[in-house]
Design a protein around this nucleic acid. Structure first.
Lengths: 139, 139
DNA sequence: CTGTATCCAAAGGGATACTG
DNA sequence: CAGTATCCCTTTGGATACAG
């Protein structure tokens, strides 16, 4: 901890160890950037879907309601760059592209599942809390 | 599955069961909205910090590098509304406010920890993948 | 200390058109 | 089919000022 109350962490800052030490999270922490990407709206859904095996671009697009071609393409490229999915293009006419999760991506998917399961099972409690809050604020 | 290829799910759509059925995720699925909020950049960090016990507004602000007063305030209110954190204001001068995670919030925090731990331990692999990707695309 | 309100710049992301 | 490029509107979020 430096004198101004923030910590300067070299190498790969570990957010959890920063917590244990009582340090501040560096704003430019690589782990935080990665966290932003993997917690991303579309990344979560794509990884979840790719747990079932290979899927084609169009299949992903169809099954993720509301995603635009641009965002799907963009997110897939980011996932590929991070080593979370692989892309295989077959030279058919028209071209066939298949995406699948890498072992690294599958591992992340397992962690994300927990978050998704939480959201699904706890949704009623969240909605009840919202109603209570709104009633309290509104009244 | 309706004829246009999308599914209309009533009540609380379950994304995982939608996957198992091969249905599309509804774009307006409440679970997806909740997922967006809990995967949010700031929510994750706040919940992580509140696992240690109570923290004051200023302490949170100090320990989360780069968060603005506006976003901290805004995110805390959203978390409170969802029943994930509680807010206790003491009528001191100036006022003292303490936040802590609810049981529901703590439970979510456990799930988020897995995601964070993944990010921290797998970061080297992700960075290696990025270098490989950039080399392949650049070259 | 813990907020809220406002302004405004920057980023996100949809729609559309086009290509191998 | 599976993208890329562009336009442009919308949302996000920081900075600042102000208040209980």
């Amino acid at each position: 901890m430096t004198q101004d109350g923030t910590s300067t962490i070299v190498g790969i800052p570990q957010v959890t160890s920063a917590i244990l030490r009582g340090d501040a999270y560096a704003a430019d922490c690589p782990t935080r950037r990665l966290l932003d990407r993997i917690g991303d709206k579309w990344s979560v859904l794509i990884l979840l879907l790719l747990g079932d095996g290979e899927l084609r671009f169009g299949q992903l697009k169809q099954r993720i309601g509301g995603i635009s071609q641009k965002m799907l393409s963009q997110t897939l490229r980011a996932l590929e760059r991070d080593g979370l999915v692989t892309r295989h293009a077959e030279a058919t006419v028209p071209v066939t592209v298949r995406y699948r999760a890498t072992p690294l991506g599958s591992d992340l998917r397992a962690a994300l599942r927990l978050m998704i399961d939480w959201a699904e099972t706890r949704m009623p409690e969240v909605q009840a809390a919202q109603r209570r809050y709104d009633a309290r604020v509104g009244g």
